[in-house]
Design a binder for these strands. Sequence first.
RNA 1: GCGUCGGUGGCAGAGUGGUCAAUUGCAUCAGACUGUAAAUCUGACGACCUUUGGUCUACGCAGGUUCAAAUCCUGCCCGGCGCACCA
Length: 403
Amino acid sequence: MSLFSFKSKQIISTDKQKIHEILTRGIEDVFVKESLEKKLLSGKQLRVKLGFDPTGGRIHIGRAILLRKLKAFQDLGHKVVFIVGDFTAQIGDPSDKIEKRPMLTREKIEENIKDYKRQVGKIIDVSKAEFHFNSTWLSKLGFQEIAELAETFSVQQMSSRRNFKDRFEKGVEVSLREFLYPLMQGYDSVQVKADIEIGGFDQLFNLKAGRIIQKYYKQPEQDVLTIQMLEGTDGRKMSTSWGNIITILDTPEEMYGKLMSTKDELLPQYFLLCTDLSKEEITKALDGVHPKEAKMHLAREVVALYHPRESVQKAEQDFIKTFSKGGVPENTPEVTVEAGTKLSDILLDAKLVSSKTEFKRLAEEGGVKNIETEKALTDIHEVVTESITLKIGKRRFLKINIK
RNA sequence: GCGUCGGUGGCAGAGUGGUCAAUUGCAUCAGACUGUAAAUCUGACGACCUUUGGUCUACGCAGGUUCAAAUCCUGCCCGGCGCACCA
């Protein structure tokens, strides 16, 4: 062991209250609980692993639950270890096999990681965390070793994994390669000597695979922590393609608004998983409180985690002004046109409507309003002769100035 | 490779020669109502126009049959499943 490892002796907190919080809040499953508790109380610095694919994209607040959990570990003094799945990203997940994923170039991966670090940095101190590329070791494995790794699982074991089983029953193909994926992820754990690995509940099998592989390599087995899955703002699974996500890069206004538009039933879940409020505070925030007020409270709490305090207030005021009082938001887009320009053309140019037909529909439905007079503009051939501010539907606004 | 079923609007999934710009569900959008961009109800949901109507483009791609095709035929491309290939 080199001298450098003694350079910064990390002080590890064994605060029982905090440990309890880590192991229960927003947690779906802990495996093995006793072992993990013991480890955390031992005062030894633990290596907490989280893998991610460098495919780019924004981190949403469902994913942020994981990161916030990591942060809790980091706060206790433990080591956060990120595995950049550059290898697994390329060959790993064949579930979307309609189109073969384009191979990510080295530069693209680097760029994505930089971006990822920037985003993660909003939650975690990345300077204290380790980053490893799993191609470093996975690309060097030979068939000999892969075969040995494969020996650690039986086909029956793999087949009983729920999402494989489902597909067998439905008659949907499961490729052999998919069987290999847990092996790779597990091997990552061996390489970084993970004490703990965390992931979403859907990752349970892969996480546990790490234990099996570590055991094979005569390493102490990692304990596994799975996080509850956060539902999207509409109650469905959170997914980029559904558009029901809140990302940690959203502006305060976007975040606030999206949180306000969540279903009432999701309130307790969001409070528990997305804020730092204690259980008692959450109970207080919900008990007998008007859902709208509770939601505003939630929105303030969440926005404050990712944005400065002042912008929280601003976002709230903006929301009240725009939606509760029917006003105009701060950042209303503006256009300047010649007098006599057709309204339909202006809106089309401003991309507020996708076609003239859409404009026609909106106008006929009374969805295009002059904000000052509250009058709906129903004439589809309306021509603009003076400066006006329009509200189209509930959340599209445009200020039109005349040259 | 052989067989078989299939490729339809953002998605799922009807439709098997005219009444199809295409049922329905989800998503989306609007209106009403409200507690908010929630819930509920109502409506809209290819584009363009001189708009009780008209025109164009669209049901994997390319042709063909027909007065008429998402629907029938031929070829091609892509996908699911079964069989074979191993034992």
